[in-house]
């Protein structure tokens, strides 16, 4: 494309100038139609957040006023009320803080290791799908393995410290990542592959410029799921043989019948999970802005 000036040695059969899109009414209209479609399909989601907050408050209120106790004929030592859980959290804040860090470290460590292994497996399988698909299917079976079966085995292997819980979380998260990432890496429309092929792009370039980018949204979804399973894995792992952590405290206090502290473990674990979930979501927003924006329009 050296020069745009037309070489008019031949007479142009058509005298229309190169149109600019700005004065192209058809395209402009199309663009607008697209926009309205996006926003009207789902009603404007100015989420009236008082609804869920109100629901939560009412729920807590009924709980606090022993509504559930009356309804299900429960005693206070069975189901503590929110205020006593809050008091228990306050009274044991130092212990809970250090145990959350401990459990959080197991979880994050396990998630990162497991997701990395899973991603690696998916990438390897995507380069050789003939044999790779079978391996991924086998890995998917790991998803069906109840965690509790893993916990004692990992304790045997890695002792009762952090390592065994990291191992449990790794195994649990590995499969999810491998399966989702593989799906993402292989779900390329043929036309895109033909396009890359027409540009004589090598397998590695296709992976880098096309497959990996296409798989990013699914990889992040898997990471989010893994954060949730990671919490469960770490806590169930601590149920077994452990001397520290939220899961240990939970099972220990239940045996002692100290329900407010047991409940505070659950609350803290939930907060931990939600915080980590939103961390991943933040990273996702930065890493795949095109996907997040698109999702918003749907």
């Amino acid at each position: 494309m050296k020069e745009v000036t037309a070489v008019n040695t031949e007479q142009s059969p058509v005298s229309a100038p190169l149109p600019r899109i700005a004065d192209d009414p058809a395209s402009g209209l199309n663009a607008r139609v697209h926009h309205t479609k996006g926003s009207s399909a789902r009603k404007e989601s100015r989420s009236p957040f008082w609804l869920p907050i109100g629901f939560g408050l009412v729920f807590l209120m009924i709980w606090q006023l022993k509504g559930f106790h009356t309804l299900f004929r429960l005693e206070l030592y069975q189901l503590p009320i929110p205020s006593s859980i809050a008091k228990a959290i306050q009274a044991n804040s130092d212990l809970l803080w250090s145990y959350s860090l401990y459990t959080g470290a197991e979880m994050i460590g396990g998630c990162l290791i497991g997701s990395a292994i899973g991603l690696f497996a998916a990438v390897a399988a995507s380069f050789g799908p003939q044999a790779g698909k079978g391996a991924i299917t086998l890995l998917a079976a790991l998803n069906a393995v109840p965690i509790v079966a893993l916990a004692p085995v990992m304790n045997n292997w890695f002792g009762d410290g952090v390592a065994s819980k990291i191992a449990i979380v790794s195994i649990m998260t590995m499969a999810t990542m491998a399966v989702s990432a593989y799906k993402g890496l292989r779900s390329v429309e043929p036309a895109y592959l033909e396009l890359m092929h027409a540009y004589a792009a090598g397998r590695f370039t296709i992976f880098l410029k096309l497959r990996f980018r296409l798989a990013l949204p699914t990889i992040f979804t898997a990471l989010k799921i893994n954060m949730a399973t990671g919490i469960i894995g770490a806590i169930v792992g601590e149920f077994f043989i452990s001397s520290r952590g939220l899961g240990f405290l939970l099972s220990d206090q239940i045996k002692l019948g100290n329900m407010p502290i047991a409940w505070s473990c659950i609350v803290i674990a939930a907060v931990l999970g939600i915080v980590l979930y939103y961390c991943i979501q933040l990273i996702e927003r930065l890493a795949v802005p095109w996907h997040v924006a698109q999702r918003k329009r749907q």
């Binding site: 058809a26 395209s27 199309n30 663009a31 697209h34 698109q294 329009r297």
Partner: peptide, 8 residues
């Protein structure tokens, strides 16, 4: 791309 019409 998703901000453009089909022709664009």
């Amino acid at each position: 791309p998703w901000q453009l019409s089909g022709g664009m």
